[in-house]
Amino acid sequence: MRTVCALDGLRRGGAVDKRPAFLEVCTVTKRYGGLVALDACTLSIATGGITGLIGPNGAGKTTLLNVMTGLVRPDSGTVHLSGADITSLPVHRFAEMGMARTFQIVRELGSLTVFENLLLAPRHQSGEGVGAALFGRRKWWAEEHANAVRARALLERIGLWHLADQPSSGLSGGQKKLLDIARALLLEPQLILLDEPGAGVSPPLKLEMIRLVRELRAEGVTFGIVEHDMHLIGELCDHVHVMAEGRLLVSGSFEQISRDPRVVEAYLGAAA
């Protein structure tokens, strides 16, 4: 599983993550005009782990996440998922590959109810075909029912069941974040990428989120988390990548990177 570019990443970083990589980003570069958002960035997310991605604002974290999920095409470099090159895959195929993501700025599907938001997510819905929607009603209704049972269990788990039939536009910011995660879970992903899950979430909901992520990891889901909240990163992540100016600066456990002088410098400036 280790590739040349993974080794390259290790040369730059500190500690070696010995587990096989589930998602690998190899020398990805992305420019927006004169701005280099990602500069030959190389890193990986280990199978079964919770990998944190931190860095100051403008370090390229969200751009990297967008490259990982096909929303942004890199100018150069590749993205591999379990060894398969997925760099030029259309966005909607990523879900099929077992990957789900949430968004930094909550983007709910406002005119759908909370429950419809969840029912939308499951893969391979026969009722989405033009013919089957009309003539395969019995089949898609049975699928719908099975999905509904799972959706209900999830909503009860995140404490939003009583809001099931409300339009999702009426939820609070934190509830929308939870709904976003729940929707991603219904894709039955092997890898979930969370973009600042803690931002704007109240402390009790944040604890709820930490509990949920831990439970899911125990169930075998791999996580990648972009976050500014160091407490959340420290609580959850077993491996952390620090980015600065579009590149990987340091990698290691939370303790290692929080002691690393380069990280302190990147966050606080050279004077620190």
Partner: peptide, 16 residues
Amino acid sequence: RAIRDDATISAALGKP
């Protein structure tokens, strides 16, 4: 309806 609300999210959820 989901695509009307937000095409990017719908694509990320695997909708063509």
